[in-house]
Structures are given as C-alpha cells and as structure tokens.
C-alpha cells in the first residue's frame, strides 16, 4: 500500500524532472550558467511569502507551502535529497530555515544566498542580502512594495558557477497589509566540491 508520505516523496522527484525542461531564464545574460530551481518553499502564513511563491511559480518552480510546522516539509526534502541533490529556494521564518539548512548540509548542499527582510519602525522594509554578486545584482533592481515578487522570480534560478560573494542592504515599501514579521529568503544549492550525497 502506498502511504501519503511515499506519494509526497514520489511527487517531488517527478516534478523535479519536469522542471528541467522549463526553458527561459528571467535575465538575458549568462543564460547558459543558470539552472532552474525546482522548488520554492513558502510559509503560507505570510503574504510576502505568498507573493514570492507566485512569482517563482511564474518562472516554472513548483511551490511547496507549509503552515509554520516544518515537519512534513522536512520529511519530504529529507527523502528526496537522499536520492538526488537539487536546489531549493524559499521565503520563511528564520526558524524554518535553521532546520532546512541543517538538513541541507547533511545532504551535501549549502546556503548560497540569504536575505533578511525586516520591517522598520518607519513603515518600510529593510533587506539585508548576502550571496553571489551576480544574484545580488539581479535582486538589487527597483524595490517597491512588490519586492517579494522580485525575490521569488530571481530565486527560481541558480548558477553553479563559482562566483564572488557580496552583501547588500536595501530599503523598500512594506507590502500592503503585510505581517510585521522578519522573514528570510534563501537559496540552498548542491555543493560543487566532492559529492557528499550519502553524508547523513
């Protein structure tokens, strides 16, 4: 008998294969160096995460939502990453990212980008981003109240090429009716050194 959990695990693998056939990269440059991120994770309690996930879906990523309890997501990714390492991005609380990045490390992935999105007392959002200079350049465009869409769109792709790292701090407007919570956007990618897929 196939359990619900097995179905979730199989679904991950099937969707990932389907996604590799998605064609376009949002940015015109360096298309050959950018690969699709098969999954975007969104904490469904937050409007910004919803908006980011819609944008990521528009770029072809499959969306995984969770209600704050990371259990089912953890189990799904644990099983899937045991079979194959693939990139995942998302917008969650820092608590969820802590769990996922620990799992990622054990399965041979690393945190390639992190953006902390913090509401300010002046009613704007402060974005503290750390990642490859190329990704930061793509994220550092026009930042209006739809910053989450930009984040979701750009985190639907990743580049395995070696890149210098950087940091950036940006300000934008708050999303309308936004939850005043600090969120984090992130990108977990396979390590490019020796395979550590069996490390667990």
């Amino acid at each position: 008998m196939i359990t619900r959990r097995e179905v979730i695990g199989s679904g991950l693998a099937v969707s990932m294969l389907a996604r590799t056939s998605v064609a376009s990269v949002s940015s015109a440059d360096s298309q050959a160096n950018w690969l699709p991120v098969p999954y975007f994770v969104a904490d469904e309690r937050f409007g910004a995460a919803h908006e980011a996930s819609h944008a990521a879906a528009g770029s072809g990523a499959a969306i995984m939502t969770f209600p704050g309890d990371v259990t089912a997501l953890y189990e799904s990714l644990d099983l899937a990453w045991r079979s194959a390492r693939f990139a995942v991005s998302g917008m969650t609380t820092t608590a969820a990212l802590f769990v996922l990045e620990r799992l990622a490390w054990e399965r041979g992935l690393r945190t390639a980008y992190r953006g902390v999105h913090r509401p300010t007392s002046e009613g704007s959002m402060r974005h503290e981003l750390a990642g490859s200079s190329e990704l930061l350049r793509r994220l550092a465009g026009e930042h209006d109240s739809h910053w989450a869409s930009r984040v979701g769109r750009e985190l639907a792709w990743w580049s395995p090429a070696k890149a210098s790292g950087g940091e950036a701090t940006l300000l934008s407007q708050m999303l309308p009716c936004a939850h005043r919570a600090t969120l984090v956007s992130w990108l977990l990618t396979p390590k490019d050194d020796r395979a550590r897929t069996a490390r667990k």
Binding site: D69, V70, T71, T93, L97, F98, E101, R114, V116, V184
Partner: peptide, 21 residues
C-alpha cells in the same frame, strides 16, 4: 509520531541566520 513543530517554540540561531529569534 515524530514531528518538528516544537522547533518554532524555541527559536534559532546559526551562522547562516545570525538574526535568529
């Protein structure tokens, strides 16, 4: 039944998440 929900109760901190809760 195993679960992770308690994690959200205790907060986090890590090199990748110096913000933590």
């Amino acid at each position: 039944i195993p679960e992770m929900s308690a994690w959200s109760l205790v907060g986090t901190r890590s090199p990748q998440n110096p913000e933590g809760q």
